[in-house]
Design a binder for these strands. Sequence first.
DNA 1: CAATTTTTGGCAACCGGTTGACAAAATCTT
DNA 2: AAGATTTTGTCAACCGGTTGCCAAAAATTG
Lengths: 365, 365
Amino acid sequence: MATGPLLLPNGYDGTVTDATESATVPASTKRGRGEKSSATIYDIAKLAGVNPSTVSRALSKPGRVSAKTQKIIEDAAEQLNYQVNPFARALPTGRTQTIGLIVADITNPTFFDIIRGAETTAAARDYTLVLAESAESPETEITAARRMMGTVDGLILASPRMDDELIRELASGKPVAVINREVDGVPCVVPDVNKGISEAVRSLAANGHKNVAYVAGPPQSWMSVRRWEGVQAACEWSKLKAVRLESSKPTVDGGRQVARDVMDSGATAVITYNDLLAIGLMQELQAGGMRVPDQISIVGFDDIFGADFTTPPLTTVRSPLGECGSRAALLLLDLLLGQAGPEGTVRVETELVLRGSSGRLLVAN
Amino acid sequence: MATGPLLLPNGYDGTVTDATESATVPASTKRGRGEKSSATIYDIAKLAGVNPSTVSRALSKPGRVSAKTQKIIEDAAEQLNYQVNPFARALPTGRTQTIGLIVADITNPTFFDIIRGAETTAAARDYTLVLAESAESPETEITAARRMMGTVDGLILASPRMDDELIRELASGKPVAVINREVDGVPCVVPDVNKGISEAVRSLAANGHKNVAYVAGPPQSWMSVRRWEGVQAACEWSKLKAVRLESSKPTVDGGRQVARDVMDSGATAVITYNDLLAIGLMQELQAGGMRVPDQISIVGFDDIFGADFTTPPLTTVRSPLGECGSRAALLLLDLLLGQAGPEGTVRVETELVLRGSSGRLLVAN
DNA sequence: CAATTTTTGGCAACCGGTTGACAAAATCTT
DNA sequence: AAGATTTTGTCAACCGGTTGCCAAAAATTG
C-alpha cells in the first residue's frame, strides 16, 4: 500500500502538513509526475516568516505592506521561483488576464490581420489571447462564445454571424467588442466604407465605366450589406448603374463560380465583397480569355495578404484590419480597467488602393 | 453604508448562507455587476436534494451514481442552466481543457495553416486553443512559453527558436509537441523535405539548370538547415552546383533584398527557404527586367496561401502545414489522455507543386 | 432470513490565492 | 507622555469544484 502519487496523480494523499520540515525548499512535490511544482504563497510565507495573506498583498497590492516586508517577501518569492497560480487567482476574483477572439473563419486571411492586431496589443498589456472560430455558422459561434465567456475577461467578435440580440446578451455578462459590425449598445470597431467606396467608384467612372456589378458576401454579413449600400449610393451619385450579384461563399472558389453571372450581367466593372472573391473572379475571367483591366475592371475589399501578388495586382478598398483587431482589444482592455472609453462605435478609415486590376475600358461594350 | 456589491464587485459581503430562501433559482447574484451568474453545484445539490459531492460525481464520473440520482441531478442542472466553472475545476485537478500554441511570427502566413489545423482538431476534441507569438525572438518565446505552461494542459511549439535544452525542460513539466524541428525526447511533427526537394532538383536538372542557389532562412531555424542539407544532397546527386545565400529576414521584403546577391551568384535557379522569400525575390527580379522562368527559375517552400496568385504562379515544395498543426494537436491530446502514441517523430510528406515559376532555361548563361 | 458483498451518497479536507474585519504596532498630536 | 491616528500584519471565510474515506442502503448469496 504505497502512498506514492504515481497512479493517481491528483490525489490529496501523502502531503501531511508537518511543521518540522525544512523551509528552504518548496514543500510541494505533489502535482503531476513528481516534478518540482511551483511554489505557493504558503511556501513564501513560511520562508519569509509572515502570514500568507501578507504575501498575497505584497505581491498584488502595491503599497499595502511596508517596504521592508515587501522586500523580504519579494526576495523569498524570487528564491523559490514563485509563479502565481492563475486558477487560484481566478477563482475568487474572476479575473483571468485573458481575452477571447472569435472569428467567422480561420481559413480566411482577412482575419489573420485581425488576429495579429488583437494578439499583439493584448500581449503588450500582458493579456493572453484565446482563439476560436465559428466556421461561418451562427450556432457554432454562439456555442463557442458561451464556452469562452466562462474563461475570459472579455470577448472580441470579429464579423459575428449571430443575432444582435444574442450579442447584447453576451455583452451584458462581460465586456464584448465587435469588429466589422455595428450593434446598438455594444462597443464596435467598424471600417467606414464610404470614403474608400466613393474613391473606387469615382475612379471607375473616370475610366469610362457605366455598369457596375457588386458581388455580395454571405447573407448574414452585416458588412456585405453596408458595402452594397455604399456602392449603390456612390454609383447613384456618379450616375452609374449598379447591380447586385450573389455569391455562394466568400472565397476564391466562390469568386470563380460567380464569373458566369458577372459576364451575363454586362457590367464592365465589378466590386466584390472581399478580395478572395475578387481574386477567384479574376482568375476565372482571365482563364476565359478576358483581359483585366482592358475589358473588365475588378475591385476587391480589405487588401488582404497576397492581394498584390496577382497579375495584375488587385485594386482594393483597404480596411485597416490589423488596426481593427488592435482597437477592439484596446476597447476591451479599457473596459476591463474600468476606464470606459468613448461608448459608441469606433470608425476607422478605408481607402482605395489603386493597383492594376482596374482602369480604363479599352473595348466598347 | 450600503453593503451592495456595486463598487467592490469582488467582495464577499452580503451573501449570507440563509437556508430559508427559495430553491428554484440559483442563489448567487453576486458576481460582476449584478447579473445572473451561473449556478454552482451547490445550487444543483439544493434543488436535487443531494450532497454537492454527489452532484460533482454525477456530472464528471460516469457510473459513479445511480441512474435515478443521475437523472434528477441532470434535470436540475439543465433547469438551472449549469456550466462548470473551469477555474474551480482546474484548481484541484490541474486540467484546463486548453492547449497552447506558440508560433514564431503571426505575420507569417506559413503559420496560418498550422494555427488552423491545431485549432480545428483541438476544438473537435473539446479543447480550446490559446495562441501566442514569439516574434522570432528566443527570449520572447521562452517567456511566452513559461507563462503559458501555467494555464494550459499541453503546448505546441511551431518552429521554435529556443534551445533544445529549454524545450526538453518545458517538456518535462507538461506535454509538449514541436512542429518543424526535431528535438530528442520530445514528440515532433516534421515535414520530410527529401522527397519534395529531390523532385524539385530533378525537375531543375531536367530543364537544363547547372547552378542552383539556396536562399537561407533565419540562422536559428532548424528547418532552414535541413532544407539546405537537402538541397546540397540532391544537387550533388544530380551533379549540379549549389551555393548558399543568406537572407536578412524570411519575408517578402527579405526576398527583395536578396535579389542582388542572387544575380551576382550566377545561379539560374533559386530555391528559397520559404515562399515569402521566393515571392519577394521574384517581384524584385521581374522589376529589374528578368523573365521568370525563362531566365531564372524560382522554387519556394511551403505552398502558403497566395503562392498561386503570382505571375507566374510559384513552384514550391509543399509542406502539409495544416496537417502538421493537426497532428501536433493530436499527439498532445493522446499524451494527455494517457494513451501515449508512437513516441518519436511524426514525419509528413512533402511534394513538389510544379507551377510556372520554374522551367526550361531559354537564355544561355 | 441472516450474513456478506457491492453500490451509493455524505462528510470533510483540499487546491491556492483574495479580502473584509480587526488588533497590534508605529507614528503623529498636543 | 498620554491619547489619537495611521500603518501594517493576522485571522478566517470564501471562490467552486474534486476526491479519499466511511457508513448507510441495496443487492446478492447461503
